[in-house]
Design a protein around this nucleic acid. Structure first.
Lengths: 213, 213
DNA sequence: TCGAATGTCATTGTTCAACAATAATCGGAT
DNA sequence: ATCCGATTATTGTTGAACAATGACATTCGA
């Protein structure tokens, strides 16, 4: 890996992000500056620097004089996230060229998901599904949109962290993804977008169902 | 002003952002930590905190051990910004309900622009145009998209800062905006989206033309 | 003279310690 | 038991210090 000059703050931020995504830090949990600074062996100032980055990315919530805590996506946040996904992903599919290189990456993600399903490696299935959607977004050829989507995914994983059965969430959509790839290859962008919209709606519903409990 | 708990860092960030948007700080200009800290009467640490916010928002560029400078949008950045605008705004218009309250705000912005044009207050015309598009984006009812768009606008104004004749940029589009409002009221969303796309394309072209020189 | 190696300097990165501001906690009075 | 006020712990902010890095000027050799 070629990292010319990653500041210590962003390194620490990456570590904390990893902890959050892994579920080592739970939503709503408060992060003490002094305690974390000692644990990570950095100064309070540097840790605060990392907090700012993650707060800006939506992974942490910062309340002045009350501290930072792992963001706890509420119903409104999930609805909002899916609204953005719908807007970005559907438009990306609608405007896609049938020969865009990203389509190959989408197909590859589908194959990877199929292989993982055979071995019941549900976590891998989940990762492949995320890869599929990231490739889909890169159809837009916009670094900015891809960056926005990356942040969105991090928050989404926060929400998925509460789901204990990844198979139910990710597995049923492999064939749907495959169909989208085929439609794109044939230039049937509108049908592909419709199919994608249906997937997103269903995914949102099953995620919201968890939050009702 | 009711600001219950705005940290000093974000206050300073707002000040610097204002300076950038006003053109008091020019793209590419280097910002010395010590100098700015003395000028703003805050500590270096607090100023760095503000830098982090603005860097994350794309207004400043940070190069390790070389300092922060006002971002200088290049051709690729402008193209990317307009790609995002196209994606967000067109979809917002396409999915809008004819009775959405934001449409009234759009109409109001058009009227404001017309009045300002009468008085040749071109700066006000420009602000009204920005208000129009912000209202348009709020058709999505997504706080997240509105936040993304706000950041985008700040960067866009950075690019507009190099244009010395705002009349040429903003004035011709007032009637186009008005037409979009009417089409939305009549539920002709697709036509409105087409019209909007044409506007964005033209706006992008005239902005790019400045950069060629 | 030109170019490269070297040393100096200014600036940024990071840490530390202290104090101020604020919120949470606890205890006492009614 | 409830409300009110003081205590306490935590965060916000500051200033100074030192290390790390990059830019610039100087010097030396060919």
């Amino acid at each position: 890996m070629n990292e010319p000059a990653a500041s210590l703050g962003s390194t620490i931020a990456a570590t904390i992000r990893q902890w959050v995504v892994e579920g080592r830090l739970l939503p709503g949990q408060r992060l003490s500056e002094k305690q974390l600074a000692e644990q990570l062996e950095v100064s309070r100032n540097t840790l605060r620097e990392a907090f700012r980055l993650l707060t800006q990315q939506g992974l942490l919530t910062h309340i002045p004089y009350a501290g930072v805590m792992v963001a706890r996506p509420d119903l409104a946040a999930i609805i909002d996230i899916y609204r953005v996904r719908q807007l970005i992903e559907c438009q990306a599919v609608a405007d896609a060229s049938p020969h865009h290189p990203a389509i190959a990456r989408m197909a590859q993600a589908v194959e990877q998901a199929r292989a993982a399903r055979e071995e019941h490696a549900w976590l891998t299935v989940g990762s492949a599904n995320i890869d599929f959607h990231r490739a889909l977004v890169s159809l837009t050829d916009s670094p900015r949109i891809e960056a926005i989507y990356a942040d969105l995914c991090a928050e989404l994983r926060l929400a998925f962290g509460l789901v204990d059965d990844p198979a139910r969430i990710h597995a049923p959509y492999i064939e749907s993804n495959s169909a989208i790839v085929e439609l794109l290859k044939q230039g049937e962008n509108q049908q592909a977008a419709t199919r994608l919209a249906a997937y997103l709606q269903q995914s949102e519903r099953s995620l919201l169902a968890v939050y009702k409990g």
